[in-house]
Design a protein around this nucleic acid. Structure first.
Length: 218
DNA sequence: CTCCCGATAT
DNA sequence: ATATCAGGAG
């Protein structure tokens, strides 16, 4: 496991690599962000943005999503994948926003997590990006990077990864760290061909050193 | 744990 | 062909 000093080194190097890391989901208000993050499950941001470009022109309010049939909404988001669940969840979510929150998106993580299709990760993203609340959303990239570097254990659940990160990263850096880890995972420490040979974190990365050793042997 | 699921990279 | 993508619900 990495010690405090090594983790500090990782965070600083990630900042150098991605000084402008930020949310890459196109949105202009909290409601659009909730929809975008819900759609982003098991799907790339690039594809989500492609779909929401037209979607957000057609649907501005919760009422708009409820004034069409489920089939029509499914069709409008079909290329995203998992579209049946996502369309159903969007309409459920819109009903609750109108019934319980006056059509507005709640700002607390606890309230967000009650919404259909919104789990812990999505709630963390919305609370952090839309409302400035400190949070570390653990998605596939944050999980992979944390485990490869040795910030947490391989067998840890996403919740355990989040707890570890909250403990080891200063609270005022949670949101930026979360975004830097996503960029690092998305563009450098990729799932398939991580660029270990040109990685500034190699000296502290257990997985990177293992991969380099294997590469030299072959 | 399984299922949902199309687009893209490799 | 197959793995992967800002996961969540049952």
């Amino acid at each position: 496991m990495l010690n405090k000093k090594q983790i500090r080194f990782c965070l600083d190097e990630m900042e150098k690599m991605f000084p402008n890391a930020d949310c890459e989901l196109t949105h202009s208000n909290p409601f659009e962000l909730v929809i975008a993050v819900l759609l982003s499950a098991q799907c790339t941001d690039v594809l989500v943005n492609k779909v929401t470009k037209d979607l957000f022109k057609k649907y501005k309010t919760p009422e708009d999503y409820l004034n069409v049939s489920l089939e029509e909404l499914q069709n409008d988001i079909r290329s995203i994948g998992l579209y049946r669940n996502k369309a159903k969840n969007i309409q459920k979510l819109c009903n609750v926003l109108l019934d319980e929150y006056g059509g507005e998106v709640p700002s607390s993580k606890a309230e967000l997590e009650k919404l259909a299709g919104v789990g812990r990760k999505t709630a963390n993203v919305v609370a952090s990006v839309a409302f400035g609340e400190p949070a570390i959303a653990v998605d596939t990239h944050v999980e992979r990077v944390s485990k490869r570097l040795g910030i947490c254990r391989w067998k840890d659940s996403v919740l355990e990864v989040e707890k570890t990160l909250m403990k080891k990263v200063p609270k005022n850096e949670w949101s930026v760290t979360h975004h830097r880890m996503i960029f690092f995972g998305r563009y450098h420490c990729k799932a398939k061909n991580p660029n270990c040979s040109e990685c500034p974190l190699l000296e502290v990365c257990r997985e990177g050193q293992k991969r380099m050793k294997k590469e030299n042997a072959s």
